[in-house]
Amino acid sequence: MGLFSYLKSTILSKIVMAGTGVILVLFVFGHMVGNLQILIGREVFNTYAHFLQSLGELLWLVRIFLFICLILHIITAIRLYFLNKSTKPAKYQVKAYVRSTLSSRTMIYGGIAIFLFLVYHLLHFTAGVADSSIYGHVERYGPLGIFERQDAYYMVIAGFRSVPVSLIYIVGVIFLAMHLNHSVQSMFQTLSIAGPRLTPVIVRFSRIFAFIVATGYILMPLTIMLGIVGGGL
């Protein structure tokens, strides 16, 4: 049994999509809640960033775990995309969709857009490659400023001051929200959490969740770009 033998089975592939999806969705939510602290101020945000950095090996374990989930999610998605494309060699001349949605039919394209955005995001804020002028600033804190830590607050504020950068983030988040709109409820169905009373609640939850994620993530670049947050850096 090879590591990727599950790809031969449609249902096991779906379950891997949903299982890795759960992890990624939890990360997306946690990442949003943590970063929204930038709206409070430099002190709170830098303390949070410093706390994450101070986790050391633990932070890397989490990063590696998330990376594995992401890779499995992508490999499985590509395999399912080509499988599902191959099952309909002759297209309908007229096709009427009844229950499927724009987000359910554009999962692969949304996924590709999110992936490209994610690469940019990591280069921008995690690796500091996309714009090195915002990266590596130091904040002095504590009594008389005797301690030093990375000024993550400056990095984000200066990063989002750029209108094109903020627009990239807003568009990326809209793709993410469309992806979540279908995938959160889909995840529950695939993991067999479904029923006549439960499913409508889950579908509504999925929509609300996507909306909350979109609002939370758009709030950061939007308020910073407009100078509402971090006006004086």
Binding site: I11, L83, T87, S100, S186
Partner: peptide, 26 residues
């Protein structure tokens, strides 16, 4: 193919078989 939970099947089924059975099958 593999199910991506579009639920078009349930909408077309003349006997209204529910997609909850797909959840059960998984």
């Amino acid at each position: 193919g593999a199910c991506t939970n579009h639920y078009e099947c349930e909408a077309s089924c003349p006997k209204e078989v529910s997609v909850r059975f797909i959840a059960k099958l998984n």
